[in-house]
Amino acid sequence: MVTVVDVRNVAKSFGRKRILKDVSFSVCRGEMAGIVGENGSGKTTLLKTIVGLLAPAAGEVIVQEKVGYCPQEMLVFDTLTVDENFAYFAAAYGLRQASGPGGWRGRESLLLSRFGFAAYRDSLVSNLSGGTRQKLNLSLALLHEPGLLILDEPYSGFDWETYLHFWDFAEELKAAGKSFLVVSHFLHDRSRFDTVYELREGVLRCA
């Protein structure tokens, strides 16, 4: 099995508070790994450290795949439309071709339809509901067809139907060899993961 993320002895503190203590784990290609834990247990800090938004105080993180990161906060541009957000992130990912086979416009249409918000393509993000914004937040992480998806509570604010659509889509991607690292606080999600890690007081254990 090819390892796509290797986290080795990572520690992180904010001031005197130790958030992550000697965290080690790995995710293999095609694996769906989940991280669960109570609020404030360090799940988001761990993901931010893996993607590079935070620097670890100790240890190292090795990522071997193109990453798609969906943050917990909705990091989108609310004075732009949904379509403009897609265009902005397509530019960031370096996706040159907009239309035609393999172009990002096709990918955009697919994501809009899979998550059921195609009707809002030309709407300003500031006019969207929280759930629809979250659909955009998640879609932007999937736009460049990453090999590894690092998702921080990606379905918060989704209605039940969209939540199920998300998991259907995730299963399809997994079958295509994509890897997942998902933070969740839903107990019923545990059955969907190949491996479940529990983060408690900064210590990661295989649940």
Binding site: L75, F77, F89, Y93
Partner: peptide, 10 residues
């Protein structure tokens, strides 16, 4: 923060 996400993306 969204700008930082853009930096993360490329």
């Amino acid at each position: 923060a969204a700008n930082r996400r853009l930096v993360l993306c490329g």
